[in-house]
């Protein structure tokens, strides 16, 4: 079992934990965090795939993809958090 495989399986495991959380959690914030975990797992897998035995440089393409993915996920998280806050304030307003 080489290190690449271990890292790759770790990425898949992190993704799976996030997937489980996103499907099972009820609390809105926890579900957002679970989705973040999914994206970390997917990104991790790509970064692992980029590694090449020295002296070869790592493949830059997956790195570029992961950076794009991070940017996308930041925006998505921001929107989700804004929606959660909005929902909270609407619910508080209707309770009063």
């Amino acid at each position: 079992m080489n290190s690449g495989l271990i890292f790759g399986l770790t990425g898949i495991a992190v993704f799976a934990i996030g997937l489980f959380g996103a499907l099972v959690m009820v609390e809105p914030l926890r579900r957002v965090l679970a989705l973040k975990l999914c994206s970390v797992g997917a990104g991790f897998l790509l970064v692992v795939g980029a590694w090449q035995a020295p002296p070869d440089m790592p493949d830059p393409v997956p790195h570029a993809l992961v950076i794009t993915g991070i940017v996308v996920m930041i925006s998505a998280t921001a929107v989700a958090l804004a929606l959660i806050r909005r929902l909270h304030s609407l619910e508080r307003a209707s309770d009063e």
Binding site: L35, L45, L65, A80
Partner: peptide, 18 residues
């Protein structure tokens, strides 16, 4: 939630393809 999860599943598949 559904939409982001769908996109992330897709991304994981993209990773496998690469």
């Amino acid at each position: 939630y559904a939409s982001i999860l769908g996109a992330l599943l897709f991304l994981m598949g993209v990773g496998f393809v690469y």
